[in-house]
Each structure stands twice: as C-alpha cells, then as structure tokens.
Design a protein around this nucleic acid. Structure first.
Lengths: 237, 237
DNA sequence: TTGATCTGGAGACGTTTCCTCCGGTTGCTC
DNA sequence: GAGCAACCGGAGGAAACGTCTCCAGATCAA
C-alpha cells in the first residue's frame, strides 16, 4: 500500500510494440496521470503529469496525442482492472456477501471511484471499447449482488447504484494533510462502517430514504441516453 | 429542499451597514459562490459566480476585494452555521446518539463538508475569526460524542474525525447526471448506512481498521501546527 | 557498430481570467 | 418627491497560464 504498483498496460491494439524503454515510460505516465488527476482534478497542466512520471512533456504528447487520449487511457485501464476484480471475487468467494465486501475493498485500491468522477465530465465513455469494459464489469457485480439478495444476506433495498456510489464516496481523497497511506486506511475504515448498514440481519436503519437506483436506472441517466454529449474537454470549464 | 435558502449573513464587523439592495446582493453572491465552488471547484472564473448570483462582476469585486476574501466569507459562513447546528442538536435532543444523527443529517444540508475540502487548500483558516468559529463548533460536537460514548450507544472506537470525515464523504456531489435533489437524497441515504456502523450494539464490524483519529490528532495535522502555510490562492494550482 | 527509435525542454502562440473604470440607476433621508 | 450618496453592470486592456511543436542529442536493439 502507499506506493501504487505500476501495472503493465499493453499498448493499444495492433501497432508494432513499443521499444522497451518507451513502453516503460508509457506505463509511468499512465500511473502518474491517474494519481495526479485524482489529486488535482481533470484540469491539471499536463507538464505536471510528465514531471511526476519523470519524463519530458514531449514524451507524454508522443504517447497520448492530446489530453483526451490520456484521460481515456486512464479510465479504460481502471475499468478493466475493476472488472477483473469483480469476476475474481465472484469466482473465488463462496459467500456472496463476502464477495461483495472483498470487491469493494479491492476496488478502493484501484482508485476507480476517485478517478472516474473527475474525468467523467470531460470525456465520453460511450464508445464500444469503453462500453465493453463497463458492461463486462457491471454484469459481474450485478451477479454478485443478485446472489447476495437471494441468500438474504444483503438488504433488499440496496441496489447496484448504492454499491457503486458508496465506493466512489470512500475512494475520494479527503481534504487536509493526510498522507496517502492514512487516506487509504480511512477509506477502508469508513467503508467497513457503511458495510455494516448493508447487512440484512435486522440491525441497521429501519427504512432507507432516498432513491433506490438500479443498474438500469443508472444507465437511463447516463449522458448517452439523453442525447447529451459531454462537455468538450476544455481544461477546467 | 433543492433550492437552498439564502441565509442573511450580517456584513463583517464594524462597518456602516450596507444599503438594503447591496446587502441582498452580497448574500446572493455568497450563496452562489458556495454552490459554484462545490460544483466546479475553487478555480471557477468569478464571472460565473456573479452570473449565477444575478449580479455583475463588478459588484462581486466591490464586496469581496479578491477571490480569497470571497472564499473566506463562504467558509466562515458555513462554519458558523454548522456550529449553531451542533449546539442546537446538543440542547434539544435528549439521547446523545440521536443528537449525533440529527447533527450529521443537518450538516449535510449546509454543504460544509463539500465546500471546505474544495477551498481548504487555497486559503488559511487559522486566523482568530476562523479559529473561533471552528473551535466553538467542534467543542459542541465533541461534547455530543463524549456523551454518546458515556451512554454506550456510540462505538468506542469511533472518533471525532470519523464523524467529520463521514460527513465530508456524504456531502460531496456525486458524478453523473443526478439532479441536485437526487444527489442530496443519496447523501442522506448513504449516511444512514454508515450510521448503522456507528452503533455500539454488537452488530457492525467486529474491529475497525484504519487510524482512529481524535480531534486532537486532527489539530496536530493541521497546516498551522506544521509551520506550513497554505499555497497562495492561485486559482487552480 | 549503425540506424531506427526515442527523449527533453525552450518558446511561439492562443486562450482564459483578472480587475478597473465610468456612465447610468436606485435606495434613503429630509 | 428632490437630491445625493451609494450602488450597479459590463466592456476591455493587461497579464498569466497552458498547449504543443521542433530539433539536437541520447539510447536501444540487432
């Protein structure tokens, strides 16, 4: 924990593989971008990402022609990892509630819940590539939720959106002078508190206010299904 | 709900009172600033705030000489309201746990947990005026917590920081196309889930990971006590 | 060893935001 | 209801900030 492992991300689709050093730089930039976007928002100067990655700005532009390409690569990477995590949790855990708990905690580490919110209003995630990564992941999660509902270990009125949004809430870095480690630890701590509320054992709040949004509801509200294209990726806007 | 009531905020300290229309504009700007800062970050163009408030940009500059003054006024306002809420909850509720629950839900509406994080790294809140508003509020909250601990209705290992940070987590607007109303409702909903974890009735997580930070710990980590002055309020940075 | 690939950073260019200035309007007092 | 101080809006000059290209030189791979 603390220092995030740099995952090797294969270079996109069918191009000649990068030279070893170039590939390493690409990965470094991607990792730096994820962290910097989370810490400073979608509008950070790209120089800062390059600096954090330990490369020159030109190298960044060589690999990612513009800000949007970089943001897309970051999101796609996070989506894929999260999907993997969901599938693995579903496979390896017998108790569906435990699978859910494990999934949530693992996902916190990927920081998807922190990075997506930041980038979401700058890019579209509605094209095929993104869509595939998304549905593959959310199907797996929905599967876990369904099984937990069947097993009566998950409150009936807890939906897909609750799980996803809870992860978002716990992922975002807190204000103040917390170190990265403390921040992460607090995320897990508070997630545990919220998980207590998810259990269907009669404890927890009698009745839950607020909308119980399903995966389908969530999709209905997504930009694509409202004909609204996301703001062009002007830096802050 | 939805539309936030514009609270009348007295003009600062000992100046001749503003003319009625000017005072109204000042309040409007303050309310708009709070919302816009929350939605778009500390770096929003000030024109946008003026537009949202329905005034000209010059009026904004006339009332708040620079961005920092505006941010400070917004924070001070939020701190004072939150403090009032804590004191009132402590007074009016017999059961300390219920006081805590009420305090948390009310505070969500003030949006302090959303606005402070955004502005915190741009301004200092260490001067006397801020400090007084802060301690007055946090003392009241700490009082509630102590009483709930004594009554054994609040988990022993839940601290001041947990309460405050949970509020922050639930206050921040979620990504996506939620309306303001849905967003608020989801905040309360998820807060209820987390509150389930706070109860000391043997349900909830066996043991809590992560650091249990007290109010004192929190203060120790604050910028002032580390000799570190906050970044100058350059817009984004 | 050699040439193809990759690198870094200076700086021209375009964009965004700040913040003042002033002619005109509005509230307040007598 | 007259007169004046207080207040308003918004255009636009000036400055700060980011983007993205270009090319001399370093590095890898065979």
């Amino acid at each position: 924990m603390g220092v995030t492992v740099i995952g090797v991300t294969q270079v996109e689709s069918a191009t000649r593989p990068l030279r070893a050093d170039a590939q390493l730089n690409r990965d470094r930039i991607l990792a730096a971008a994820r962290d910097v976007f989370v810490e400073r928002g979608a509008g950070v100067p790209l120089d800062e990402i390059a600096r954090r990655a330990g490369t020159g700005i030109a190298t960044l532009y060589r690999r990612f022609p513009d800000r949007e390409a970089l943001m897309r690569a970051v999101v796609l990477d996070a989506l894929r990892r999260t999907g993997d995590e969901a599938r693995r949790a579903a496979e390896e855990e017998d108790d569906p509630f435990e699978a859910l708990v494990r999934y949530m905690h693992r996902t916190l580490e990927i920081r998807i819940g922190a990075v997506i919110p930041v980038l979401l209003e700058e890019i579209s995630i509605e094209d095929d590539e993104m869509l595939q990564a998304r549905t593959s992941g959310s199907d797996a999660l929905q599967g876990i939720i369904d099984r937990a509902h069947k097993a009566r270990t998950l409150r009936r009125d807890i939906t897909f959106a609750d799980i996803g949004l809870l992860i978002v809430r716990m992922s975002r870095p807190l204000p103040g002078t917390f170190t990265r480690d403390v921040n992460d630890a607090l995320g897990h701590r508070h997630l545990d508190l919220a998980i207590a509320g998810l259990r269907a054992d009669g404890t927890g709040p009698e009745k839950l206010g607020g909308p119980a949004l399903t995966l389908r509801d969530l999709q209905k509200m997504s930009p694509s299904s409202r004909g609204k294209t996301p703001r062009k990726a002007s830096r802050k806007k």
